[in-house]
Design a protein around this nucleic acid. Structure first.
Lengths: 342, 342
DNA sequence: ATTAGCACTCAATGACATAGAGTGCTAACA
DNA sequence: TGTTAGCACTCTATGTCATTGAGTGCTAAT
């Protein structure tokens, strides 16, 4: 497709542009990288690279800037899976993760690590609670008409919610309901706990009386209201370090994007590949992210995807570092998760 | 201090500036507000107002801009406690609050309402957990070496945390510990549950064996690690609607301020006044907020302050609306809190 | 005490020239 | 035939300068 030399030049352009954020000219290129050819020759090759769509000239007589297609080639050719630059001293940082019991905290901390190591914005998605199976449901009576419901799933997610009851209830009834629910719902996927199920069940527990039936229905309702996926962000303000976001409008739209939890979650969960996924600018489906790149990894347990880790930043991203950091962090997380639950 | 006319002019300047964000000139003033005097007279008065430090001329031959001192006078003179502009149709919005059981959700939703009604950024601080008293502590065994600890305080705060145990434990021991803890700690302020207390207690429960002692110590430790105050933000990106934040640097430093949870919490908890507090620009102690204003209200139960609600924005803030909305929302919240816990 | 009139100030705006980085093309060269 | 030096050309960025206009302060008249 491209001869060795063109590839080398493209690589140099991209590396330089990633570093400097300024259009790269032929003279700069020949001075900084010993390509062994003159600026004039480089110019000819650059003209070809532009024809092929790998680089773009912002205006006549300016240097060249990589296109999304260019980045794509660069990532495919030069990044691959070679784990360069192991994060050594930072393993100390990772070790702190070991101490964390809750998966939510772990994800929050992971995204902190990711953003600190890469200087971009990190996103972590929790496992989908509705896809997980109920391991335990606990009811705690706070006072005669308030109940805390705690749900623990097989994937280690813990959710609590408070229910205000229309009717008073005593401790014994709570115990009855608690036993009943654990008995009937244990092992069920949360998404399968529907109003239809309630009806089926209600036949069986009719003997427990109408009050209890009512309370169970309230519990179901609160189940339905919890977030399916929690999103953890860190390093949001990192974008201000990049000149592409010196424009208030761009900064604003980036930051507003990060507030659209649903969009983010749809975007990121669409990367279901094995291992790592790099998605560059216009390759993204959503308009809001067409000038951003994402490097996304899944974390799994027993070969099923639990959740996602992602780095988002400008298309002028240091893909090499990000891919390397992401690979290592996500592998570490997975190791941790799987060792915990054995 | 100031004659009626000067006051009236100052008011007009501030109102105009709040609306337009542009320095206000004498001609504009005489045209837009029927002050009954000519621009020349206004100019003389404005010169006086400037000498007194209530308004500032950004440069010779520009219009006038209110100073922090000017805003202060304006707020003291014209805002007071007259509840203008009741949020009527929005009471529907408030009604949604009634449905929320958990205080955390309630605060999150309150800050959403506040930011939507005012178009500024809203902050809500949860009650300080360490100042509250333990009402109930619940232990849930997930598996043989993971324990969930749930704490419920008298102020309705619920916190959970997961503890990984170094040693295995069975259900019966958990029950023993649970009973023991509830027995000994019920009614104690969380801040008083210290390592010293552990030692005192350990003498009493020595008969329960070393394992249990160890576990209790782990529980204490996890108590110590929870956040004392949770901070809920909403409407963060609202600042982009104000021309003062069209400058990337200012926008950045504002947004970064909002990430400094500790600073925010110290700043806001310092307003312990009865009712509402308006803090304007340079009146704030922290450097980071010297070009912002805050309108802060406390919410209480039985005459003790539980937490805070606050609106933060540029000193050119629509104090009138903000104070009005804040008064109403905070009163609503308090009503709600106190009715729930009766 | 108020106001009309006027000279003055200064930011904002736009027109214009200049500098400089970089290109594409041509012709010479190995 | 591929490579390169040389050169004219392009276009942004930067700086200068004049113009405009909103607004002021001062003075003198009312």
């Amino acid at each position: 497709m491209l001869n060795e030399r063109k590839l080398r030049i493209l690589q140099a352009i991209i590396q330089d542009y990633i570093e400097t954020a300024a259009p790269v000219g032929s003279r700069t290129l020949s001075k900084r990288y010993n390509l062994g050819i003159s600026p004039a020759t480089i110019r000819n090759e650059m003209a070809d690279l532009e024809d092929l769509g790998f680089i773009i000239q912002p205006y006549t007589s300016a240097g060249r800037v990589p296109s999304d297609k260019g980045y794509r080639l660069y990532v495919d050719q030069f990044i691959s899976l070679k784990k360069t630059k192991a994060i050594e001293q930072d393993c100390l940082v990772l070790d702190l993760l070991r101490e964390i019991g809750e998966i939510e905290q772990m994800l929050q901390y992971s995204s902190k690590i990711l953003s600190q190591l890469t200087n971009y914005t990190a996103i972590a998605l929790s496992p989908q609670i509705k896809e997980s199976r109920l391991r335990h449901i606990q009811l705690i009576l706070i006072n005669s008409d308030h109940l805390i419901v705690i749900i623990i799933t097989d994937k280690g997610i813990i959710k609590k919610s408070v229910i205000r009851l229309d009717d008073k209830i005593d401790r014994d009834s709570v115990q009855v309901i608690s036993n009943f629910l654990n008995d009937k719902l244990h092992g069920l996927a949360v998404k399968d706990i529907t109003t239809e199920l309630i009806k089926t069940l209600s036949a069986e527990y009719a003997h427990l009386g109408g009050l209890i039936e009512k309370i169970i229905s309230e519990i179901f309702q609160s189940l339905d209201e919890i977030n399916d996926i929690d999103i953890f962000l860190d390093g949001v303000m990192n974008i201000f370090n990049f000149p592409e976001y010196n424009d208030v409008l761009r900064a604003r739209s980036f930051l507003e994007l990060l507030e659209k939890k649903e969009l983010l979650s749809n975007l990121i969960t669409s990367f279901e590949d094995e291992g790592l996924n790099v998605s560059i600018g216009s390759e993204n489906t959503y308009e809001e992210v067409k000038d951003c790149s994402l490097v996304t990894a899944t974390y799994k347990m027993d070969d099923t995807i639990l959740g996602w880790l992602s780095i988002i930043g400008p298309t002028r991203m240091d893909y090499s570092t990000v891919v390397s950091v992401m690979t290592q962090v996500s592998e570490f997380i997975m190791e941790l998760l799987n060792s915990k639950h054995k």
